[in-house]
């Protein structure tokens, strides 16, 4: 069902020329997007400092709590990220057909793959006229799934597994996510490693994503950035 839904989203392409504006991203999804973006920025910055702390603070330990604050910000943003991710998953089930796109890849659809290839050609400057999509273009969809969706699960699972260690044995996070540490071989140092690598995966995604969004906005003659603000995709010809 979900799967067909995501193929449907792709099918709308044909109609693109006939319309000037489509309502793509519903409000909850837009809200999620910007909250998510903010949380990730906070997480990446604080996470970086957790891995490589700032130079030593002067004065008494009791007068300082810098590292504590950094970690607190990380965990708070982690909660935000996690809770909004749950909301986002819910929305994928009840929202419009675009909302499921980043979760499901129509791997069995030849047509979809041919569209991926076409988009690849476009990004390699082999096509001169861009196609127009209402939701994500298939390449973007693929990239989002591989780097963002998978990345989010990695970060949340490893993040909360590590968080569970601090909360302690038997805590909710330990009970829900403690298995991640066992999966990593039992030594949570390995989980730190995955979590740390995951950060770079997400950072890489963000770099490419932000670039692609701006570029498409300019080059593919359809709105992008404003779409994620207003929800409406405008087609310029």
């Amino acid at each position: 069902m979900l799967y067909e839904h995501s193929v449907d989203a792709l099918d709308k392409i044909k109609d693109a020329k006939l319309v000037k504006a489509v309502y793509v991203y519903e409000a909850p999804l837009r809200l999620w997007h910007w909250v998510n973006a903010l949380a990730i920025v906070v997480l990446a910055i604080t996470g970086w400092f957790i891995g490589s702390p700032t130079p030593t603070m002067q004065g008494e330990a009791s007068d300082n709590f810098l590292f504590g604050y950094i970690r607190f910000a990380h965990f708070a943003a982690g909660y935000v990220l996690g809770i909004f991710w749950l909301v986002r998953i819910y929305w994928a089930l009840v929202g419009n057909e675009h909302s499921i796109q980043i979760f499901v890849i129509p791997v069995w659809s030849k047509h979809w793959w041919s569209e991926v290839l076409w988009e690849l050609r476009w990004y390699l400057f082999l096509e001169r006229v861009p196609k127009k999509y209402i939701g994500h273009n298939p390449m973007a969809q693929l990239a989002m799934f591989m780097m963002f969706t998978v990345g989010m699960f990695i970060m949340l699972f490893t993040g909360f597994a590590l968080y569970g260690e601090g909360l302690g044995e038997g805590s909710w996070a330990d009970r829900l996510f403690g298995w991640v540490i066992s999966l990593a071989g039992g030594n949570s140092l390995q989980v730190h490693n995955w979590h740390h690598l995951g950060m770079w995966l997400i950072v890489t995604f963000v770099i490419v994503h932000v670039y692609a969004a701006i570029r498409e906005d300019i080059m593919s003659r359809q709105s992008m950035i404003s779409t994620m603000i207003s929800g409406w995709r405008m087609f310029k010809d």
Partner: peptide, 11 residues
């Protein structure tokens, strides 16, 4: 641990 939380490390 208080030094950890304070951000005070052996460099």
């Amino acid at each position: 641990r208080p030094h950890f939380d304070a951000g005070q490390f052996v460099e």
